[in-house]
């Protein structure tokens, strides 16, 4: 019984993803072509995994925040800060090719991200500020911080080890795909093999009852915001390393919105409570597939956002039970009892 229920949550996002792939299959069969060259796999599907990994990583962190009835708008700025921090450290180093230097830079960038996540968490759990406002502060200020770090310039680095993070290959696949998989598995393990997931859902669903049951909601909230910031930091490293430069202005721009969208498409309610990491992953893949599809089909750049908006709208409507019910009811007019029985099976 519980298995069927979980699966049904994944059903609609998967169906939407399948539909999108089907459109590609009909219009551009070469979409599915995968070439093997110099020990690397190439093709649109691989690109989707590769370019989608920062979004997937950010969305995983976002899922946990949203499950606690919160939201983190600052992840885009954190992406910029993390990349800027790493590139600045590397560009100041004596030997950019030194592995030690790159490791130090990566750790520093991630430490700064986690510290900023702690700041978010303290505002939410300590000061009791509404999450959307608390993280809006860092969303706005964070861009400024990133530009301060880069002195308003684009910092370019030539470090090969650093370039590997976002553009390297390992066992025929892009390295960033492994990073995304690692983050996903870590989050899944932490939430489902320990009780963290249940506590997060309890806090998101009913904070008052959770407190009376003795759950330390404050420390769990801190941990969740810190983890979300860590995810954004990792995504920032991938993004900046992929182009070997840090752009405080544009790195991670609007990624918070795509991440929130991925979470919602994945079936996690913005009202908190039950969450699905697998659903989020499907949601992130769906958004990236959509972006790639739009490029592949040669949609004029000036209307790509409009096309994207319509597809997202369609996906959201398909997922809405009341919308499906309304469609079903139109299909069988004049027989209300029968159609309602149909619907009641879902409830």
């Amino acid at each position: 019984m519980p298995f069927r229920w979980r699966n049904s949550h994944l059903f609609w996002p998967l169906a939407a993803l399948g539909g999108l792939l089907l459109i590609n299959l009909l219009l551009k069969p070469e979409f599915f072509a995968i070439r093997y060259q110099n020990g690397h796999l190439y093709g649109s599907l691989i690109d989707i995994l590769n370019f989608g990994s920062p979004l997937a990583i950010v969305a995983v962190g976002m899922t946990l925040v949203i499950a606690t009835r919160g939201i983190d708008l600052s992840v885009g700025s954190l992406v910029a800060i993390s990349g800027a921090m790493a590139c600045l450290t590397i560009s100041r180093g004596a030997d950019q090719q030194s592995l030690h230097l790159v490791l130090g830079a990566v750790l520093l960038a991630l430490a700064v991200s986690v510290a900023l996540g702690l700041w978010n968490g303290l505002l939410v759990a300590g000061a009791g500020i509404q999450p959307i406002i608390a993280t809006l502060i860092l969303m706005v200020a964070g861009r400024g911080i990133a530009q301060l770090i880069t002195s308003g310039q684009i910092i370019t680095v030539t470090s090969k080890p650093y370039h590997f993070i976002g553009a390297g290959w390992l066992f025929t696949l892009p390295f960033s795909v492994y990073l995304a998989a690692l983050v996903f598995l870590f989050a899944a393990w932490m939430t489902r093999r320990t009780s963290l997931g249940m506590f997060i859902e309890a806090i998101g669903c009913n904070p008052a009852a959770s407190r009376l049951a003795g759950i330390r909601s404050r420390s769990i909230l801190l941990a969740v915001y810190m983890f979300c910031a860590l995810c954004a930091g990792i995504a920032g490293l991938i993004t900046s390393s992929n182009v070997s430069s840090a752009d405080g202005n544009n790195a991670g721009l609007w990624i918070e919105l795509d991440a929130i969208l991925a979470v919602v498409i994945g079936g996690t309610s913005l009202a908190g409570g039950r969450f699905s990491l697998a659903g989020t992953l499907v949601g992130a893949l769906l958004i990236q597939t959509l972006t790639t599809t739009i490029y592949m089909l040669g949609v004029p750049p000036e209307i790509t956002l409009v096309v994207k908006a319509f597809v997202v709208l369609a996906v959201c409507l398909i997922q809405s039970p009341s919308f499906r019910r309304a469609i079903a009811a139109r299909g069988v007019p004049r027989k209300p009892v029968a159609s309602r029985q149909e619907v009641s099976r879902h409830g």
Partner: peptide
């Protein structure tokens, strides 16, 4: 409703909630 049950969770999870919170998440 407001201070007892966690609506989204199952009966099992609601029963073990306080014990699990006492043991810690890990």
């Amino acid at each position: 409703k407001a201070e007892g049950i966690i609506e989204d969770l199952t009966v099992r999870e609601n029963i073990i909630l306080a014990l699990q919170a006492h043991r810690g998440w890990f």
